[in-house]
Structures are given as structure tokens and as C-alpha cells.
């Protein structure tokens, strides 16, 4: 098996450049392992080799996280390693934030597997995101010997494409990722057993803890509606005939924009429903009932607002993953705001 080439991130202390007095040190690289990194090759039976070490002072990293990330991405992509390791950061907050951020960036932007380790309450653990494995560590460096082999074990399997087990068994922090598995009993039997335990006051474990959602603060009101450009948009899948961009009926992979500058309303046959989650017959009959172009034009003529925007954004919000929906919403908002739109009427089905 080929050797796995690793870039390793350390703070100034584990990088053997000094203590707190060196915390303002800007990032630098050493080609090869530093500190306990030297032991990794032997401990992994020669499988893992640190080819570059990045060392940065904790204060510098905390105060210049963006610059540090840019620099590290450059240094990493330069030698395209197989794996990125950071820390362990244990209970050290500034170190943890840097480790979590860098792992997320390297994994997200370069597609290189990334593993770090820290105490569960270290803020870096939640920064790392669902694509990074964070090994659960105690809050002091005494835990180094236990944690290091766990990092290497998961890291090598990520590189080799081998399966990784549950958080408890493997020692990593749950990443908020849900994976399909087979239970020993069918769902209905599990439900009956769960209810019996709940009725008896015995401990039971829910299979799906309630999700937490981001809160979106309502925007401030449009200051002067009569002078504002207003857009209409929808997640109800109103698209031109034949769904030219083939927005999926379910879990849409995209959002699209279509020109309505010359239209007073959406004619039956010219526009149709691409959404798979509701009865499309009434809206195919009159697409204005989901995307109210006719009503918006009437209000525009009355001068209730200055102008209706020339295009509308549309996607299909039918069991679409929340992460995709967030991204489409942000992109639509940015595109409309960039063209001076001050308000949007977004219809939902």
C-alpha cells in the first residue's frame, strides 16, 4: 500500500516554538514532521508520513483566521497531500478554532479528507462541520497517546475509502450526519416497544432527536414602497412550458430565473408546474395562482410600487434538503439585491 502523505497543523507550543509569549507568531511551514508528528510514521507502521507541518501562533490564528486559511490552502494545494491532520487541540479554544476552520476549508475547498481532535466543548468542534471527523479528546495533552492512533485510523480509512463506524465505537464526535442502517425489527414493532417503555416510565431512546433549525430574522420593511422595485418568486415550480432547465420534481438540484418583463400574466400552456408535491391541475390551468404575475402587474399599474422586476426566481421546494434550500435562498437574495430589488413576494405551496 502506498504511503499516505499528510500535512499537519500545530500551534506554536506543539510546534516547539515557545509558549504564550510566542502566540502572535504568523504562520510558517516546515517540510517534514515536527514535535510528536515525528512519531507518526513509526506508530502507523510506515503507512503515514507527514510531508509538511504548518505552525502558527494561537493569537495570530484567532485574530487572522481568514488570512491563515488562505495561506494554508495555498501551502496544502502546493503539495496536494492525501490527508490533512490538525492538532489535537484538546481544550485550547484558539487552537481548536484554527484546527476546526482549517479542516473545514481543506476538506470543503480542496476535497482532501481532514481529521482533528479536541474536547467536545471546544468551539472548534462545531466549526469543523459535517465533512470533518473530530476525535473526542480530553482537555489536556495527557490524552495525546490515546487520541493520535484514533486520528490516524480514521484518516487512513478516509483515504482508502473504507467504512467508518459509529461515533461511540470510533471515538469521534457525532457530525450531525444521519446514515441509513437496517434495524433488527421492523419500524412498527419498534414503535410499539417504544410506547410500552414510555408508558411504563422506563428509559427509552428516540431514534430521531428533534432537529434544530436556523432562525431567519424578518427583514426590515421596505422604506418607500412607491419607489421600490419588487420581485415575485416561488418555490412552487412554475416554469416555462416543457420545464426547459429540468428542475427536479423533488429535492431540486437548482434554482432558475425566467424573464417576465414583457408579460402581463402567465398563460395556460405557456407555463406549467414542475413541482411533485401538490395537485398541479389548478395551477396548470392558471399559473398566476402560484406565481401571481397578473396581480403584481395590477399593483404596479396602480403605482403601489415603482416597478416589477424583470425576472423571477423559481425552484421546487418539495422534500428539498434544507442545506440546498438555504443555498438557493441566499443566491436568489444576493442576485436580486445586486439588481436593486428592495422587496420580494415569495409564494409557497
Amino acid at each position: 500500500m502506498k504511503t499516505i502523505r499528510v500535512v499537519h497543523y500545530l500551534n506554536q507550543f506543539f510546534g516547539q516554538l515557545g509558549g504564550e509569549e510566542m502566540a502572535n507568531l504568523p504562520p510558517r511551514i516546515v517540510d517534514g514532521p515536527v514535535g510528536f508528528g515525528v512519531t507518526l510514521k513509526g506508530a502507523s507502521g510506515g503507512r503515514v508520513e507527514i510531508v509538511r507541518t504548518v505552525i502558527c501562533g494561537d493569537n495570530y490564528a484567532a485574530e487572522n483566521t481568514e488570512e491563515l486559511a488562505k495561506e494554508v490552502l495555498r501551502w496544502v494545494s502546493e503539495i496536494s497531500p492525501d490527508l490533512f491532520l490538525a492538532g489535537p487541540a484538546f481544550g485550547a479554544g484558539r487552537y481548536g478554532i484554527a484546527a476546526g476552520t482549517l479542516c473545514k476549508e481543506v476538506r470543503g475547498k480542496l476535497g482532501i479528507p481532514a481529521v482533528t481532535a479536541m474536547h467536545p466543548v471546544n468551539p472548534g468542534a462545531s466549526i469543523a462541520g459535517p465533512e470533518v471527523f473530530v476525535i473526542e479528546a480530553k482537555d489536556t495533552a495527557q490524552d495525546l497517546k490515546r487520541v493520535l492512533p484514533l486520528m490516524v485510523s480514521i484518516g487512513t480509512r478516509l483515504v482508502d475509502g473504507l467504512p467508518i463506524g459509529s461515533p461511540g465505537g470510533e471515538g469521534y464526535l457525532p457530525r450531525g450526519v444521519r446514515v441509513n442502517v437496517r434495524a433488527s425489527e421492523r419500524g412498527s414493532a419498534r414503535a410499539v416497544q417504544m410506547l410500552l417503555k414510555k408508558l411504563a416510565g422506563e428509559p427509552f431512546e428516540t431514534e430521531l432527536p428533534m432537529p434544530t433549525y436556523d432562525r431567519v430574522l424578518p427583514a426590515a420593511p421596505v422604506r418607500n414602497l412607491a419607489k421600490a422595485t419588487i420581485a415575485i418568486g416561488t418555490e412552487g415550480g412554475i416554469v416555462p412550458r416543457g420545464n426547459p432547465d429540468r428542475i427536479e420534481a423533488h429535492n431540486a438540484s437548482k434554482w432558475c430565473r425566467y424573464d417576465i418583463a414583457s408579460l402581463d400574466g402567465l398563460e395556460k400552456g405557456d407555463y406549467e408546474v414542475a413541482h411533485g408535491g401538490y395537485d398541479p391541475v389548478p395551477a396548470n390551468d392558471d399559473p398566476d395562482r402560484v406565481l401571481p404575475l397578473d396581480a403584481a402587474r395590477a399593483l404596479e399599474r396602480e403605482g403601489r410600487f415603482r416597478k416589477l422586476h424583470d425576472w423571477y426566481p423559481v425552484t421546487v421546494g418539495n422534500v428539498t434538503a434544507v442545506r440546498s434550500a438555504e443555498r438557493y435562498g441566499r443566491q436568489m437574495g444576493e442576485a436580486l439585491a445586486a439588481e436593486g430589488v428592495e422587496g420580494v413576494i415569495l409564494t409557497s405551496t
Binding site: R178, G187, L195, L208, M210, P211, Y213, N251, R323
Partner: peptide
């Protein structure tokens, strides 16, 4: 429907009282 990566919240609504839930898998 937790997304193909399983990382999105899988339900469209929630309530703290729902402390006993059986899930039959991620459709994505």
C-alpha cells in the same frame, strides 16, 4: 429527508414534546 449527505434537518417541523420518534430512513 436529510439530504444525500444526511446533514440536513430531516423533518419540516418539530416540537420539543416529540421525544419518542421512530424513523424509517432517509429517502434522499
Amino acid at each position: 429527508y436529510a439530504g444525500s449527505d444526511g446533514a440536513s434537518p430531516g423533518l419540516a417541523d418539530s416540537t420539543p414534546e416529540a421525544d419518542a420518534v421512530v424513523t424509517n430512513g432517509n429517502g434522499n
